[in-house]
Nucleic acid binder design. Structure first.
Length: 889
DNA sequence: AACGTCACG
DNA sequence: ACGTACGTGACGTTG
């Protein structure tokens, strides 16, 4: 027989635990004894049976089909006491944290879910063990399935096989149902045949085989009284049998993967145990974690602290083609992070830890290895390693496989790509996690404070995980045809992003400060004016307080509500602006405060003292669509739309007087991508002849000649074009243009009538998304959209818009990523001094040396326009300037 | 930590 | 009838 599964009757077991253990509560009075008993049981089961799969079934409060057929079903049974009832949700939370599958469905009892799963497992040829306190389950026993019934003490289980059931009860598992049909069951209020007890029932079933057979041959019943009793209760017997029969065809989706036994979320489990005050379990867990760490045999780590040993290591590494590594660095900024240690692993499960704190000489000793492109490197978040090495004068080559990025391509909507989480998710095993090593919040320490034995163990685990993961992830990438995207785009891009971070963007600190002072003056003045008009002082930044002032004190009409109170966003304020002079002051105040806090103070805070530059982080595993994101600070949302904000761009300047900024942006890249994937002839024509796309769209939507399109029509058409890219809806367009839904729908109909190919594309995008469960981009980047199958209209609609938008936004992201790699490569190859320093989704900024202007312009334009060949031309516009502001005129 | 708001493509 | 445009990140307030 194959692998083993444990199926637990959750209600039955928690009941046994509750009544079997003395009441136990936390300090706050929450009852915990049943949960405690349950967990101990679980641990025991894990230890004794080591199942590959597990599931726990629960009853629901809702009436089952048995109640529907029989009002008195389970009537008279006492309600679950509250002390037990309150433990059910805790138990479920615990199971979730332990990553244990659970089932519950309205209308069915746990037994029926178990029966259905048992049948499923039999088909899958699993060895199935059902754990319950209820002997009704004995009917499920078979060659594949054993029933484990809890004994009095809870800790021991009685094992029933078909043979042992026959031995003990003299009937087969199937006949067990007949038995109950005859005997009835007082606890479930199943009637059976009055006057027939266990002995008689067994005798009858042994004689006839089943209730049905018995009914057919009642004349063969010798005992006259018994025969009469049975003959007058035939229907009741059949009915009782039906009630006692466990269903095996409950409509539930089952898949073995979901049932797989996984390692628990250690951290959350510990947290939960603490909350429940399960001290003995906490002890046990900590001990087992300890022993896990000890399990990494000290002999598997070689500590390197002498120069000669480094030489030996180099010799060994030079002979290998592949290494797995992790560097440990300390220091806030990318530019000054010292490497204090390194774990490195080759093909065997054996790691070296180089202790640079003790060793004389630094990482530079290993420069030849890191710069050898024939030694392939695998790591997790390699950008960090690249940055640390670069600071030490080493340019990493042969960066072959980054496990975080591989997982990102497989699951771009994951919230975390932490190595330990991924390791658990893909390999079902646990490893230490960085946060528990370093602590969090103000208690966080640096790697410098970590004992090197501990650090080397952690490094060993990381290398080991990365190595195991690579094998699995490579196969997955291959399966989803993502290898090309991974190896030719995402992996090479890491270095480009690292270089952008390392270079940074120079800012004029003084100019920022003086802009800040100006803003401060204006903010103070506005505050005074607002307080005067309001008649009192309040915190204008607080939407709650502002709402009170506007809608209670000043009695202005509330237009919109949020979850927590009145909405005071810009749309609301604009609608109110004519009703009270305070409104415009507030709008202005908000504008200034935003600029001051986010773009003046926020930027000043992150200027690197050593370089006078801002070194933003560019994140490659954040967005669902394939775009990159920028943090600390976000340089992708520096103001431009309003002049005052745009002034901020004046502080973004080149490194020194030898450079200028070259800003190159794609013109209408998303609509061009749409033309390409939809193959719409009209849209293609518009771009091939380089027309103003919004004017063309206006002409089509409003049925006017191109030369008679008004500016109002053009801007409406622009909104329509945006809407198309976002996955249009009449509501959204109406909202945006301030028109009725009906009018908006008219625009959309006209649009789709003229751009029929776009219409077809939109329909197919949704259809394909539903069929496959995901959508793809030009480079086969994939995004799963589970929302598409939701029965909730809103969620499903969101899924549909996502299906329409992601291929467009994601393909544009693909294109600019390729362009970045090529521009970076070309600048490098030609040994130019100019550097790519920023990307803003459809725009690249290259700090260009004055001697290289023409060459760089040519490179950037060519590589961007030719990054990926579409069936429409890509168009790039470029501007040179002395500041970012100047490049936008 | 969640929410509301607002900055960008 | 449902009630939203797609994708991000930072800030200040509030609970």
């Amino acid at each position: 027989m194959g692998e083993r599964i444990i199926i637990i009757d959750g209600n039955s077991l928690i009941n046994r635990a509750f009544y079997g253990l003395p009441p136990l509560t936390t300090k706050e009075g929450t009852y915990t004894n049943a949960v405690y008993g349950f967990v101990n049981m679980l641990y025991k089961i894990y230890e004794d049976y080591q199942p590959e799969y597990i599931s726990v079934a629960f009853d629901r409060k809702a009436p089952t089909f048995r109640h529907m057929e029989y009002d008195a079903y389970k009537a008279g049974r006492k309600r679950m006491p509250d002390e037990l009832g309150q433990q059910l949700p805790i138990l479920k939370e615990l199971l979730d944290v332990m990553h244990i599958h659970r089932m519950e469905i309205d209308g069915f009892e746990a037994d029926d879910l178990i029966g259905t799963l048992v049948k499923y497992c039999e088909e899958k040829n699993l060895e199935t063990l059902v754990v319950t306190g209820d002997r009704d389950a004995l009917q499920l026993a078979s060659d594949h399935t054993k029933i484990l019934i809890t004994k009095k003490g809870m800790t021991d289980l009685e094992i029933y096989t078909p043979e042992s059931i026959i031995e003990r009860y003299e009937v087969t598992p199937q006949q067990f149902i007949d038995l109950k049909g005859l005997m009835g069951d007082s606890s479930d209020n199943i009637p059976g045949v009055p006057g027939v007890g266990e002995k008689t029932a067994i005798k009858l079933i042994k004689q006839f085989g089943s209730i049905e057979e018995m009914i057919r041959h009642t004349e063969e019943i010798q005992n006259q009284k018994l025969r009469e009793k049975i003959e007058s209760n035939i229907e009741q017997a059949i009915f009782s049998k039906r009630l006692a029969t466990i269903k095996t065809d409950v409509p539930i989706d089952l898949s073995l993967t979901a049932l797989q036994r996984e390692a628990p979320n250690q951290e959350k489990l510990l947290e939960l145990f603490r909350r429940l005050e399960f001290h003995s379990l906490i002890q046990k867990m900590i001990k087992s974690e300890d022993s896990q760490e000890k399990a990494i045999d000290r002999a598997k780590i070689h500590m390197i602290e002498k120069y000669e040993d480094v030489q030996k290591l180099i010799n060994v590494v030079m002979l290998s083609k592949h290494l797995y590594f992790r560097l440990f660095g300390v220091g806030e900024n990318v530019r000054d992070r010292e490497i204090i240690g390194m774990s490195i692993m080759l093909e065997e499960d054996f790691s070296y830890y180089v202790d640079f704190k003790v060793l004389k000489g630094s990482i530079e000793l290993l420069k030849d290895i890191f710069e050898d492109e024939n030694i392939l490197k695998t790591g997790h978040n390699i950008k960090n390693e690249i940055l640390m090495l670069r600071k030490h004068g080493i340019s990493l080559a042969g960066a072959d496989f980054d496990t975080s990025i591989a997982v990102y391509l497989l699951e771009p909507t994951r919230t975390s790509y932490e190595i330990d989480e991924i390791y658990t998710a893909y390999l079902g095993k646990n490893m230490s996690n960085e946060e528990s090593l370093l602590g969090k919040g103000k208690n966080r320490v640096t790697f410098m404070q970590i004992d090197r034995d501990l650090l080397s163990k952690y490094g060993h685990q990381v290398c080991h995980a990365v190595k195991d993961l690579k094998k699995i992830l490579e196969a997955e990438l291959e399966k989803l045809e993502l290898k090309k995207l991974f190896h030719e785009v995402e992996m090479p891009l890491i270095k480009v992003l690292a270089d952008m971070e390392y270079e940074g963007f120079r800012v004029d600190h003084q100019m920022l400060s003086s802009l800040g002072k100006e803003l401060n003056g204006k903010i103070e003045q506005l505050m005074a004016e607002i307080y005067a008009m309001a008649g009192e002082q309040f915190n204008i930044n607080s939407t709650k307080q502002l709402g009170d002032i506007l809608f209670e004190r000043l009695k202005l009409p509330a237009i919109k509500k949020t979850k927590t109170g009145y909405s005071t966003n810009i749309e609301v304020l604009e609608k109110l602006s004519k009703k009270h002079p305070i409104i415009n002051k507030i709008i202005e105040y908000r504008h200034y405060v935003k600029l001051k806090s986010t773009y003046i103070d926020g930027l000043i805070d992150v200027i690197n003292k050593g370089t006078n530059k801002i070194h933003s982080s560019f994140n490659q595993t954040v967005t669902a669509t394939g775009r990159i994101s920028s943090t600390e600070p976000n340089l992708q949302n520096i103001p431009i739309r309003l002049e005052l904000g745009r002034e901020i761009r004046k502080v973004f300047i080149p490194t020194d007087e030898n450079y200028l900024l070259l800003d190159a942006d794609y013109s209408q890249i998303e609509l061009r991508v749409l033309a390409h994937i939809s193959k719409d002839p009209e849209l293609i024509e518009a771009f091939e002849t380089d027309q103003d796309i919004h004017t063309i769209t206006a002409s089509k939507v409003f049925n006017v000649p191109v030369d008679q399109v008004t500016s109002y029509q053009r801007s409406s058409a622009k909104a329509v074009n945006f809407g198309i890219v976002y996955g249009i809806s009449d509501f959204g367009l109406a909202e945006n243009l301030g028109i009725t839904k009906k009018e908006a729908q008219k625009y959309i109909d006209e649009y789709f009538d003229k751009y029929k190919g776009v219409k077809t594309y939109m329909e197919q995008a949704v259809e394909n998304g539903k069929k496959n469960g995901y959508v793809t981009t030009i480079l086969n980047r994939r995004r799963y959209i589970p929302e598409l199958t939701s029965s909730n209209f809103n969620i499903r609609s969101f899924g549909e818009r996502t299906a329409m938008n992601t291929p467009i936004q994601g393909s544009a992201a693909d294109i600019i990523k390729v362009a970045m790699i090529r521009v970076h490569e070309e600048l490098d190859k030609r040994k130019l001094q100019s550097r790519l320093i920023l990307q803003v989704h459809d725009e690249l900024i290259v700090e260009t040396h004055k001697d290289e202007i023409d060459e760089v312009k040519q490179i950037v334009k060519r590589e961007m326009e030719e990054a990926i060949q579409l069936n429409v031309p890509l168009k790039v516009e470029m501007h040179l300037g002395k500041s970012w502001y100047d490049t936008k005129k």
